[in-house]
Design a binder for these strands. Sequence first.
DNA 1: TTCCAGGCTATGT
DNA 2: ACATAGCATGGA
Length: 274
Amino acid sequence: MKYEIQNDKIVIYDTKDFNISHILECGQVFTYKKNADYDYDVYSLDKFANVKLVDKKYIIKTNETKYFVNYFDLDTDYGAIKKEIAKNDYMKEAINFGFGIRILKQSLLEVIIGFIVSANNNIKRIISTMQKIRAFGENKGNYYAFPTLARLHDITVEDFKNMGAGYRAEYLYKTIRKLDAVNLDETRNYDTVTLKRWLLSLCGVGPKVADCILLFGYGRYDCFPVDTWIEKVYIDIFKKRENRQKMSSNLVSYFGKNAGYAQQYLFFYKRSLV
DNA sequence: TTCCAGGCTATGT
DNA sequence: ACATAGCATGGA
């Protein structure tokens, strides 16, 4: 990926594997705001960036250039990944449609909270709830940092309900308190099986949300979250319905060690067809 | 009005 | 181990 770091910005010249709309709206992240077409504000922990298409180049304006080079995974070759997972015509169409998708290197805490909120919910409200949670974080002037784990403890079940979390409010409340028992960074050393078992012990985390956290929070690319949209994709490709766990494992077997990337292209593509 | 949204928990067999 | 009711909320 051809990019250049200047004082307070990253300039991306090569846009065949980078499209900010694809990246942010493919369902992996809920902490952004669209200002206009190809103009987005992106929030991660206490960091902020504005991403805008100018003269066929993307300008990522931020005080944290190094952080966002990693966040946008700019040093990974998505051309090679796309080639590897283009296993059938359906997949090729999905890649062609969402050519600029990249899997973000998000913060674990935001991913865990975000995907607990996501269960049986719609993306618009998930984004809204995640935005409201930031009001409990540090005031950075023109935006709020995502609350630290300590600050998340200040949020009551009632608060979460007022943010539109619905019945997930208690899940969030309980999980936040359960996270005190571990060092989140150390959980990155767990193998995937151990990690998934631990994630499933968190309230509000079932098989699908656990897979999302593994994929988007831990970068375990051999995980394949199956939601209502991927169920439809699975039936399109394999012409039969099975339980979600079996669909997930079959999809990992089919696409291989980078199956998680395939999941994103497919989810984005299928949702666009409605 | 009913169905659906990036499903999970609790309870039953 | 597998099946299913109930769950908040708002938009289609």
